[in-house]
């Protein structure tokens, strides 16, 4: 579904990614792991066209995405739930969700999508009139994921959805992620909760200093020295 070949990207003169190779198949859930600053978010942003890539190719459903703006990429079914939620704080939960289905691709199905998201995340339904900026951290993350789902993604990119949340909520979010592939949605998940991320995923990648250091199934990765190095000191 998504194939990234030899990708290079960065900010201005700073190179962050070089020679990144990664792919995600249809309905697959894949985890992308790596230390802080390894370039995980940059990789997702480059896939969405928010960060310009300076080399390599990004192919989605057989078509190259190079040079397309993010809004055109969303139309093709590749959707990012960004790090730190990035809700529109002065709009209501409902408006945020509606904006999730702004694309021509998703707009005709807004009603069904909304019902589906409310069924998956009942808290959002209760809070739909509230301003997104006044939600709790957990609710905000739910809203951000719900907004991503409203776009009817074929592949959902999730950037640290559990960041800063209490264990109960983290559990809830991982459960939700686990259900996505049953809904026919492939997921590329960036996470710091290594064990959980690998448990929910079919496969994983470890990003180290801007390139892929290792890849494999959950079990292989957990015993991998590169992963241990990336998370040294973390008791997982």
């Amino acid at each position: 579904m998504l194939r990234i070949e030899d990708l290079a990207a960065g900010y201005g003169d700073v190179r962050v990614l070089r020679g990144v190779v990664l792919d995600v198949g249809a309905r697959e859930t894949v985890s992308l792991l790596g230390a802080n600053g390894a370039g995980k978010s940059t990789l997702l942003r480059a896939a969405m066209g928010i960060v310009r890539s300076s080399g390599g190719r990004i192919v989605f459903k057989g078509e190259p995405l190079t040079g397309l703006p993010a809004n055109a990429i969303v139309e093709r079914g590749l959707v990012l739930v960004p790090e730190g939620r990035a809700l529109f704080p002065f709009m209501s939960v409902l408006e945020n969700l509606e904006l999730g289905s702004y694309s021509r691709r998703a707009k005709p199905h807004r009603k069904e999508s909304l019902d589906r998201v409310f069924a998956m995340l009942p808290r959002l339904k209760e809070r739909r009139r509230q301003l997104a900026g006044s939600l709790s951290g957990g609710e905000q993350q739910m809203c951000a994921i719900g907004r991503g789902l409203m776009a009817m993604p074929d592949l959902l990119l999730l950037d640290e959805p559990s960041l800063g949340l209490a264990p109960v909520i983290v559990q809830e979010i991982f459960t939700l992620i686990g259900r996505l592939s049953a809904e026919g949605i492939a997921v590329l998940l960036v996470e710091q909760h290594v064990k959980r991320a690998l448990a929910v995923a079919d496969r994983g990648y470890v990003l180290e200093n801007g390139s892929i250091a290792t890849t494999g199934s959950g079990a292989t990765l957990l015993s991998d020295p590169a992963l241990r190095k990336a998370y040294m000191g973390q008791k997982h």
Binding site: I50, P69, V74, V79, L80, A86, L99, G100, R147
Partner: peptide, 8 residues
């Protein structure tokens, strides 16, 4: 930037 991610 986020608006763009909505397809705007």
């Amino acid at each position: 930037t986020t608006a763009r991610l909505m397809g705007i």
